[in-house]
Amino acid sequence: MTFSICVRERYTDENGTNQTRFGVAVTTRLPGVGTLCPFASEHGAVATQSHVNVELGRKGVEYLDDGLAVEDALEALLNADDGRPQRQVHGVGTAGEFTFSGEECKPWYGDRVGNNFTVAGNLLTGESVIEEAAATYEDSAPPLGPDADVDRPLAARLIDALAAGHAEGGDKREELPVQSAALIVETTEDRSMDPYYNDLRVDATETPIEDLRETYEQAERGFEMTRERYEDADDGDNTEDAG
Results as ranks from 00 to 15, higher is better:
K106L: 15
Y137D: 01
D232H: 09
I5V: 00
D194E: 12
A181S: 15
E131V: 13
V26S: 05
T28A: 12
A47I: 04
Q86S: 14
S128K: 15
E103I: 03
G34E: 04
R84Y: 12
N53W: 13
C6Y: 03
D65R: 07
A141L: 12
R10W: 03
G91R: 10
G110D: 04
L30K: 15
V26A: 08
Q88P: 09
R227W: 02
A133W: 03
G96V: 11
D139N: 10
H51P: 14
S140H: 07
E174T: 15
N116E: 11
G243P: 10
D235H: 12
A47F: 07
E132M: 09
V46E: 03
T207K: 13
A73K: 08
G114Q: 00
A40Q: 02
D203N: 15
V178N: 11
E240M: 14
G110R: 08
P177R: 13
A181G: 09
I209W: 12
T17V: 13
T239W: 13
F223E: 00
D72Q: 09
D66S: 12
L74A: 09
V26H: 06
G165S: 11
Q49N: 13
E127S: 15
A25C: 03
A242C: 11
T136G: 02
T136P: 05
E210T: 14
A155D: 07
Q19R: 10
D149T: 03
N122V: 06
Q88C: 06
D199P: 01
V92G: 05
I184F: 01
E71T: 15
L78T: 13
V26E: 03
R152W: 13
H90S: 01
L183E: 05
T48D: 04
S180Y: 06
E168L: 01
R227E: 01
V54C: 15
E217W: 02
T48W: 06
Y11D: 00
V129E: 05
A120E: 12
K59W: 11
A76D: 14
I159W: 09
E240D: 14
E220Y: 07
P208D: 08
L78H: 12
T239E: 14
E104D: 13
E131C: 02
A204N: 12
